[in-house]
């Protein structure tokens, strides 16, 4: 083979790589979603299949793991490997799978109740572990599958549930702020009604080396019909993404919770079970920890 042949092959390979071999619909299964008409989760499903097609990920190399809830039905609607697990345990499942099969693209998905209530502790430790996972939380601020109870992200004065006729009276869980405090290296917020924007966020999240948390505002048309107003209220988070934790904290706290985009991104060592994260990394463990402290927790 001559140098010219080699160059031609490279060009051909590049050209071939630029042609998507699979389309978004190829990542959808034949199972019809049980979601209510108008549910925001349809937008997340569409964005995710577009993302997988855009990234040209072979379906057999992708695994989507979920917990329990309306949003956790997601894996059944995809033509990739899926695991519909148990309530709140999506991140332990995803963690184990990624540890055993690090070559797979592992995506965890679920809702606000699943991820921030019963699975809240797993969320904290997945953030600080920084394993190469993408975690999509479809937040509709309500337990929809069980017919409309307040979740950790519900407003304290929301009183449409018979269980909390006077509201919960509790401050809301702040997903992005807590993810930052817990050590997540990628934090983004998307809106289910903007599948194209969400596709860009999901692609960035999957390509990010480390734990990527994508908080998706996904309206529940049945139990939170007022969330239809999100379409007019969401806005781009123009100041992001921050690459410094202190700046990100300020950005997140100043935002009204409806700002969309990558809020924080930082490259720090990725946790890999029993394998050195970076072969070129010659730091000792203590040096690496000190570097993380200096960068992330100043």
């Amino acid at each position: 083979m001559t140098v010219g042949d080699d160059a031609a092959n490279r060009i051909a390979e590049r050209h071939k790589a630029s042609i998507p071999s699979l389309r978004a619909k190829d990542y959808k299964s034949d199972v019809k979603p049980v979601w209510c008409p108008g549910c925001g989760h349809f937008g997340v499903l569409a964005a995710l299949t577009k993302t997988l097609a855009y990234l040209e990920l072979p379906p057999e190399r992708v695994a989507v793991v979920s917990g329990i809830g309306c949003s956790s039905r997601l894996p059944a609607y995809l033509a990739v490997h899926g695991f519909h697990g148990v309530h709140g345990r999506v991140l332990p499942l995803a963690t184990g799978l990624k540890a055993a099969r690090p070559e797979l693209t592992v995506i965890a998905a679920g809702g606000d109740g699943d991820g921030f209530s019963i699975g809240g502790n797993h969320f904290l430790h997945a953030c600080r572990r920084n394993q190469d996972l993408t975690y999509i939380v479809m937040d509709n601020e309500v337990y929809g599958m069980t017919k409309g109870q307040a979740s950790p992200t519900t407003q304290p004065d929301w009183c449409r549930s018979k269980l909390t006729p006077h509201g919960t009276g509790m401050r809301r869980f702040q997903p992005a702020a807590i993810a930052l405090a817990a050590g997540a290296s990628f934090i983004a917020r998307g809106y289910a009604g903007d599948p194209n924007g969400l596709t860009r966020l999901l692609a960035a999240a999957i390509e990010h080396p480390g734990f990527a948390f994508v908080h998706v505002l996904s309206p529940c048309r049945t139990f939170r019909p007022e969330q239809q107003a999100w379409k007019q209220l969401v806005h781009g988070c123009e100041l992001g993404p921050a690459h410094d934790a202190a700046e990100a904290a300020e950005l997140i706290q100043r935002d009204d919770g409806l700002g969309l985009g990558v809020l924080f991104e930082q490259e720090i060592p990725v946790y890999t079970a029993g394998v050195t994260a970076d072969a070129a990394d010659t730091l000792t463990t203590n040096e690496r920890l000190a570097a993380i402290e200096a960068e992330h927790c100043r």
Binding site: S29, R61, H81, G82, F83, H84, E103
Partner: peptide
């Protein structure tokens, strides 16, 4: 197991 072409499936608790 994941990685085998054409054999993807969802293990469902339901």
């Amino acid at each position: 197991v994941p990685g085998e072409t054409g054999l993807a499936y969802t293990a469902d608790g339901l």
